[in-house]
Amino acid sequence: MLALLAILKQYRNSIISFLLLLTALFLMLSVRTDAIGFRMVQEVMLDVLVPLQKLLAIPVRMGQTWERRLQEWRAIDEENQKLRKEMAKLRPQQVYIEELLQENRRLRALLRMNVGPLYREVAARVVGDSSSAFARVLAIDAGKRDGVHNHTPVVGFSGLVGRVVRVGERSALVLTLQDINSRIPVVTQRSRVRGIATGHNSSHLVLEFVPKDADITIDDLVVTSGTGGVFPKGLIVGRVTSISPQGDGLFQAIHVMPAVDFSRIEEVRLLLVSSEPAGAT
């Protein structure tokens, strides 16, 4: 017994390493990561680590804000000089411009369409980005407290970003369109051809299951089709950049460039299903 204990003590580190390695392999191969216990551990870790990331990014954001402000001041100064000169020229047209402005306002109001009466929006800041060779996931500073839940669609200023896959109390992980696990039902805006936009951990998406005879041209706008029940209809996904027939296959290989520039994304909006009835204020 004592000899066994002595052996255990001597090889303690090796035994622990071996057991932990087995645990890691077990986690990878057989445990469903969406099981409640594991999900809770992950959510707690997210809630601890993401605020820390946010804190560490403050100096960078401050520097950026000051740099932007300086550029803006310089631009404003130059613009001010130009405008002073132009104002002298444009004064006679002031009334006409006022008319145009009012018309412009009216048209803008007419065009300002919501995504849908069923959705309300919550803004969030991107605080974590794990662009690695194997995953494309963003961490954001909004969570259950803000009404975010799994599969909440996430959009940027120019189009769809992805969907939420893990939610903490104050933070969440967003699976971007570019991630290899992302599959989004889409339709081309012009010809209404349906397909599935899939991520490949690269800058382009691949439009799958599009028949060879489908009417698709370069630069066609690709939007969400609304099928599948996760994304609302009509969110911009990107534009077709290349089309190539795949030998004897049934489908064509179509590449789509996402509308969102993922390397520069800083803020996102989350589309939450509204509990208020449509049209309520």
Binding site: I16, L46, V50
Partner: peptide
């Protein structure tokens, strides 16, 4: 020790959205 390597790997997996346990195994 190995426990710290394992836990740091798990934290990395959670933050980077990778397969849970993958980074833990490689750090070990």
């Amino acid at each position: 020790g190995p426990t710290l390597a394992f836990l740091s790997g798990i934290a990395n997996d959670v933050l980077s959205g990778m397969l849970l346990g993958m980074s833990a195994a490689t750090q070990l």
